[in-house]
């Protein structure tokens, strides 16, 4: 009996040890970047590897903020484009999902099938047509252009998620709102949105992550001026400039670009995970 318990403790300890090892591998690169961004130049460029900085310094950050080289623009653009995309996608997407989940009308199946079909088509296919379209309307290198194309490519998925969320709202609630004299439009705001709030939050985080981390469209559409670049494209550019003369400065900008998302994730874990799994089931 005692031996059995001992074995069980041993197993648990081994389990935790393995898990801790894997988790360290997952997190270490980020921790290392954060720590390294506080290391002075000489320490980064020494053959001897250090984990904790021997000397802490703000020098990398002050150099970065002095020179900036567009970093402030990239940051602002990423925030504007991501939040713009989230708001626009959630608004247009949930309104459409409401129509598709709650009404029978001519062509409802057709509309839904078209939306569904484009989920299967890889976005890269639209890249060239998109570039041509935006250039025709002078939307290349504008935040509006990028926001609209992100919105368009996230809509189908949002509609797909929100449609199934709205379909579970009990019909009695809608009937009650109707009896109270609500129009469908008011029903949408007063019944559907509050009832679907957690679904909206999940879809919202998914869209936010997609927009914040998107690379190939941003690279193609918004890569002529610093005023138009987003973080993913900008940071890749900074890497090209800085890797040869100062890794420390590069680390400080890399760290500033991933920290907000990680913090946001740690605060809203459940929503993030729900959003990402909902997005995965699209296939």
């Amino acid at each position: 009996m005692r031996l059995d318990r001992l074995r069980r403790y041993g197993n648990t300890a081994a389990l935790y040890l393995v898990l801790a090892g894997i988790s360290v591998v997952s997190v270490l690169p980020f921790v290392w970047i954060i720590l390294s961004s506080f290391k002075p130049h000489e320490e980064l460029y020494s053959k001897e590897l250090t984990f904790l900085p021997h000397h802490y310094t703000w020098a990398n950050y002050s150099t970065m903020f002095e020179r900036m080289v567009g970093f402030d623009y990239y940051y602002r653009n990423s925030i504007l484009v991501s939040f713009g995309t989230v708001i626009l996608t959630l608004f247009a997407g949930s309104l459409a999902a409401y129509a598709l989940a709650r009404f029978r009308f001519k062509g409802d199946q057709a509309v839904f099938v078209v939306f569904l079909a484009t989920i299967m088509v890889p976005g890269e296919v639209g890249l060239i047509g998109q570039y041509e379209l935006l250039s025709t309307y002078g939307l290349l290198n504008t935040l509006t252009g990028l926001t609209l194309s992100y919105t368009a490519f996230n809509l189908a998925l949002t509609i797909f998620i929100m449609r199934s969320v709205f379909a579970t709202v009990p019909q009695e609630l809608l009937d009650a709102a109707r009896v109270d004299g609500c129009s469908w439009w008011e029903t949408f705001w007063q019944v559907m949105i509050p009832m679907g709030a957690s679904g909206l939050a999940a879809a919202g985080t998914l869209v936010f992550l997609n927009a914040w981390n998107e690379f190939i469209f941003a690279l193609t559409m918004n890569n002529w001026t610093d005023e138009a670049r987003t973080l993913t494209v900008g940071i890749q550019l900074l890497q090209g400039q800085w890797q040869h003369w100062d890794y420390g400065v590069l680390f400080s900008s890399v760290m500033l670009s991933f920290l907000p998302v990680i913090i946001l994730f740690l605060l809203l874990q459940k929503t993030f995970m729900r959003g990402l799994t909902a997005g995965a089931v699209k296939g």
Binding site: F30, W212, F215, L231, T232, F258, V261, F265, F272
Partner: peptide, 9 residues
């Protein structure tokens, strides 16, 4: 954590 950070970074 890694998956919330972009491919670029």
């Amino acid at each position: 954590i890694p998956i919330v950070v972009s491919v670029a970074v």
